[in-house]
Structures are given as structure tokens and as C-alpha cells.
Design a binder for these strands. Structure first.
Lengths: 161, 161
DNA sequence: GTAATAGTTGACTAAAAAAGTAGGTTATAA
DNA sequence: TTATAACCTACTTTTTTAGTCAACTATTAC
């Protein structure tokens, strides 16, 4: 079982996509700015997300990424699984051959825990997250911060959305 | 968030203690044999478990480890916490300063997940595990295997308990 | 008192994974 | 035809895991 920055980044990036998907394809550079994730790292993650068909891409100028299907049909568990973070808590991957081919003493405990985590993460869709008030507020603050930063850096007036 | 062999070993070893605690202090070497965990590694884990007062030790011949308090009063969550596996799913440890001092987009999601895992693992005591039938059966098989191994290796007749 | 037992401690190591970097290639819209 | 942005591969650094090793101390039994 591991849940690290990688899985968290993937979910955060997907949520960013979900929040702004009506604005057409979203550039990874924009996600990088808003979420503070390195562009190169995002590229790696999105390669995996694409293979799992959770996103689709548009190349060239004006291009970027879209959600592969509606936000209500993408669960947090699917996003985490796509970047190879296994939410399985057992050592044996559920096979029960944890200790020299036999079942280890705590196998059933980890199975139960895995089920819990799966049930929890599998039941939350990106749409559910988009609807949450805390998330809406954080998203707005992030957009303002990015706009302010562009303003200060380049003296370019950014048109508010 | 991480749950690895370390935490699993700790819980397994503590459960082994709980299963045989009426036989007096248990040597780590015996746990090592039954559970297939390296003795040196067990020593490290038990040093941490001792600091958290989850076990007490008896030195010298006939010595070993005992549970620090009754099995019903030790939760799986406490054991895992004792060996430094944090069941916290956030990056910030719950502080909410995940992204350059601000709260990241998915902070609340990971907080909720942490709560779920904590609630689940905190509610299961070693005693609960001891009472489970699958675990009783696995424990018996392990004892038989160890006895058979000693028999074959040394031609020593082991007195059954 | 001496030997055996069993916990106690700390330093060290190999392997794996995570996290991030760097540099180039390809498709496409303007 | 040029700028853009996805795509891809290889590499590096850092952290963590999962151990090993060696020496030390307390206690019991003879």
C-alpha cells in the first residue's frame, strides 16, 4: 500500500482539469502554474492517465488535455490506480501467499483494510469533489494567485475569466 | 501515507505475542521462526514498540517480550504508529499548508481518507484479531510447521504444547 | 564466578522507489 | 513556416525500506 505525492498529484491535476474543462483543452503548463507541480513530472503522469483513457489530448497550439469522460464517471480510485499507486494493503496482492506460499497471520486484516480504502476512494468521483465548497474556494484563490504572479512578472494585464 | 512490510510485520509480531501470551515471555527468536521475520529486524521493531510501551521485556534466560497491556487495549493503529508508519494520507500532516503555505486542492479529500483509515484501524484491537477463526487456524498451522522443522533439522523430539 | 541466554543499541548497506530533470521529437493551428 | 504543446526516453538525486552486523548489558542457571 502506498499513497504518495505521485497519486496525490495525479488526483489534484485531474481535479484541476475537471474544474476548468468547459474552457476547452487545458495546457499542462497551466496546471503546473496553478498546482505547483513540475511540468516534466506532469507529462509523465499524464502519459499514464492517457493510457488509462482518463484523459484525451489535443496537440499543437491551443491544445492540451481534456477529461476522457464526464467527471461524474471518473473515481479517485481510478486516477490513483492509473499512476501505479496500489491501494492494496496486503503484501501478496490479495493472493494469500504472503509467507512462503502460505497465508500470513494478518492477511485477512489487510484485505479488510484494502476493501475499506477501495470502497471509499471508488465512491468519490471528480464531480463530487468539484461540487465541494472548500474546493471551489481554493480553486478561485489559485487562479487569483496565478494572475497576480503573471501581472507582477511581466507587466502584462491578464484578462480575468 | 505508507503501509509497508514494516507496519505489517509489527502487527503480525504483536498478534503472535497476543496469541501466546499465557505461555509467559516470548523470545523474538520464536516469533522469527513462526512468522518468517528476520531476528535482527524484529529487534529494531520491538525497540520501537517498547518505547511506545506496547510491550515490556524480560532479559536473560527464559526472558522475552510480553504485551504492555491487555490485548483488548491495544489497537492495530497504535502498533502501526509505534513503528513510524503514518496512516496520515495528507502531505502536510493535516496542517493544510500543502502548497507553498496554502491549502492544496485535494487537502480535504486526503483528510477524509485519513479519518477513514484511522477509524478502521483504531477500532480493531489485538483481542479482536485473536478471536477470529481464520487467524486461530493459521496460528495452529504455523506452530505445527515450526515443530516439524525442528524435528527434521535436529532430530530432537519437541514436546507439543 | 562463569557461561549461556536474550534483550539493547547503533552504525552500516543494498536495493528499490519516488521525485524531479533534461533534451529531443512530432503533430498541428495560426 | 513558425510557434506551440503534447510525446517520449533516459538520466539523476533523494528518500525509504528492509535488512545486516557487531558489540554490549542484564539475568538466570550451574
Amino acid at each position: 500500500m502506498r499513497l504518495t505525492t505521485k497519486g496525490r498529484y495525479a488526483v489534484t491535476a485531474m481535479l484541476d482539469l475537471a474544474l476548468s474543462h468547459e474552457r476547452g483543452p487545458i495546457r499542462l503548463a497551466a496546471i503546473s502554474d496553478r498546482q505547483g507541480i513540475s511540468l516534466s513530472y506532469l507529462e509523465q503522469l499524464f502519459a499514464q492517465l492517457r493510457r488509462s483513457e482518463l484523459v484525451s489530448s489535443v496537440r499543437g497550439p491551443g491544445g492540451g488535455y481534456r477529461l476522457g469522460r464526464e467527471a461524474a464517471a471518473i473515481s479517485v480510485a481510478q486516477v490513483i490506480a492509473a499512476v501505479n499507486e496500489d491501494t492494496d494493503a496486503t503484501r501478496c496482492g490479495g493472493a494469500g501467499d504472503c509467507q512462503e506460499g502460505e497465508t500470513c497471520l494478518t492477511h485477512h486484516l489487510w484485505m479488510d483494510l484494502s476493501d475499506q480504502i477501495h470502497a471509499f476512494l471508488g465512491d468519490i468521483s471528480l464531480n463530487d469533489l468539484v461540487a465541494r465548497n472548500e474546493i471551489k474556494m481554493i480553486s478561485e484563490q489559485q487562479q487569483q494567485r496565478v494572475a497576480a504572479r503573471a501581472d507582477g512578472d511581466n507587466q502584462i494585464q491578464v484578462t480575468p475569466v
